[in-house]
Computed example of a mutant assay.
Amino acid sequence: MALAFVVGNKFRHKVTTLLENASVPQDLREELEEILENESTTKLSFKTARKLKKYLQDNGHPFYLHEFLEDGSLYLPEVVKPPRNPELVARLEKIKAKLANEEYNRMTRNVNTQQMSHSGGLAELGRDVRSAKAAVVTVLNFLVTVAAAFACSYMGSQYLFTETTSRVIAAVIAASVVGLAELYVLVRTMEGELGEP
Rank of each mutant, 00 (worst) to 15 (best):
Q158L: 05
I169C: 04
L125A: 12
F150Q: 05
A148M: 04
T165C: 01
S153E: 06
L160R: 09
T164M: 03
R127Q: 13
R127E: 14
E124R: 09
T164I: 08
L160F: 07
F142K: 09
F150R: 03
F142T: 15
Y159T: 10
F142L: 15
G156M: 11
V129K: 02
V129E: 03
V144L: 10
T164L: 05
C152E: 15
A149M: 12
F150N: 06
V144A: 07
G156Q: 05
A151L: 06
L143K: 03
L140N: 14
I169N: 09
A135P: 00
N141I: 04
A147V: 01
T165L: 07
A149D: 13
T138D: 10
L143G: 02
T165Y: 11
F161H: 00
F142G: 08
D128N: 14
K133P: 02
V139D: 13
R130Y: 11
V136F: 14
R127F: 01
A135S: 14
F150G: 01
A151V: 12
V137F: 11
M155H: 11
A148R: 10
L125G: 05
E124Y: 12
V139P: 02
L160C: 02
S157C: 03
V146A: 08
I169T: 14
T165D: 13
L125F: 07
N141Y: 15
Q158M: 11
T145G: 04
A147Q: 11
R167P: 03
E163L: 03
S153R: 08
A147P: 01
R130P: 02
Q158I: 08
T138L: 03
Y154L: 07
R127D: 14
S131F: 01
E163V: 00
T162A: 02
S166A: 08
T145L: 07
V136M: 12
L143T: 06
V129M: 04
M155D: 14
S131Y: 00
F161D: 02
E124T: 11
S166P: 00
T162R: 01
C152M: 15
L140F: 14
V168Y: 12
L143C: 02
F142C: 05
V146L: 05
K133I: 09
S166N: 05
G156D: 10
S166D: 09
T165V: 12
A135I: 09
S166M: 04
T164V: 12
S157K: 01
S157M: 05
